[in-house]
């Protein structure tokens, strides 16, 4: 065991892990964090806390993580390379670990162009692969990125993202291999709607034995409506929503679309839990945290293991 992370313990034990996410509020509203996180109590192993998601200013991931930690839940610190240089990132990692946060995710982050501060400078001092290298080196070698010794190294269980649906497809396994080479412990994937394509990607992952080296959590986002499905297809870069799925959502009356979306996501979970190399699920229920418990239960993923 590299860390004290509960997520690591569950994944190492061979049980399917379940994570979900909580987007911090756009204001100093600690109760909002608590309200959202409370929905996830007992039904997930870790709560991803996004870091200025979609390049919009929000309460910092670390601050919201601390609030969630104090609630007795298990937060997962997301960190984008867009907003901080390597000094700020490392101090944040140490700070998080000092507060008992032992699981994190390294991302490059959405470009500021998509957010509410398109005029901001992006930092990108390092990229997500280099961030993984940096944080695992802090943990394993007790060294800062600059080479100096850390007094009390943070023992982070380190994750990264993978998008099997972006182009070029032939690079998607190779890029995962780079993250594995950098020392990543687990992967949370982009939302999976095109299950066939995901399975094809997993085949490539297994061919290279990468599933033996990294835990892959399949990303699942329930559709609330056909409108959301269309938005995801047309407006969100790197998202692959098959037309059949949009047709299926459109085929049911508006008031039943939410239930249909949940059915779709349950079917996806059912299909993927049998795919070799899938180590768990990451449920990104965007502004739908209150439905996560139901999904996890109906998917037969309850109760969550305790350690």
């Amino acid at each position: 065991m590299k860390t004290e992370s509960i997520l690591e313990k569950i994944l190492t034990s061979g049980q399917l892990a379940v994570t979900s996410e909580c987007g911090p509020p756009r204001g100093a509203l600690p109760d909002k964090v608590k309200e959202k996180a409370e929905f996830l109590r007992g039904c997930v192993d870790a709560v991803n806390v996004t870091d200025n998601q979609t390049a919009m200013v929000r309460m910092s991931s670390l601050a919201a993580c601390i609030i969630i930690k104090q609630m007795g839940l298990n937060p997962l610190l997301q960190m984008v390379t867009r907003d901080r240089n390597r000094l700020a990132m490392q101090s944040e990692v140490i700070g998080a670990y000092a507060h008992g946060i032992d699981t994190m995710l390294c991302l490059s982050g959405d470009h500021p162009r998509f957010g509410d501060h398109p005029m901001a400078a992006s930092v990108h001092d390092i990229d997500s692969v280099q961030a993984v290298t940096m944080v695992t080196k802090m943990r394993d070698d007790g060294l800062f990125q600059g080479g100096q010794k850390i007094d009390g190294p943070p023992k982070m269980f380190v994750g990264a993202a993978a998008n099997p649906f972006a182009d070029p497809f032939e690079l998607r396994v190779a890029r995962l291999a780079k993250k594995v080479k950098a020392g990543v412990d687990f992967i949370q994937t982009q939302c999976i709607y095109n299950v066939d394509k995901f399975e094809k990607w997993m085949e490539g992952v297994r061919d290279r034995g990468l599933d033996e080296k990294v835990y892959i959590l399949a990303g699942i986002t329930p559709m609330k409506s056909v409108g959301m499905a269309k938005y995801m297809k047309n407006k969100v870069p790197g998202m692959d929503v098959p037309d059949d799925l949009i047709k299926r959502m459109a085929g049911v009356p508006k008031e039943n679309q939410a239930e249909e979306g949940i059915k779709v996501c349950l079917e996806t979970i059912e299909r993927l839990r049998n795919v070799k190399g899938v180590a768990g699920f990451h449920l990104m229920a965007i502004e739908w945290e209150h439905r996560v418990a139901e999904i996890v239960e109906r998917a037969g993923l309850l109760p969550r293991p305790s350690f």
Partner: peptide
Amino acid sequence: LLNGPCGGS
């Protein structure tokens, strides 16, 4: 990104 492409390609 020195190790791209990102998921938005």
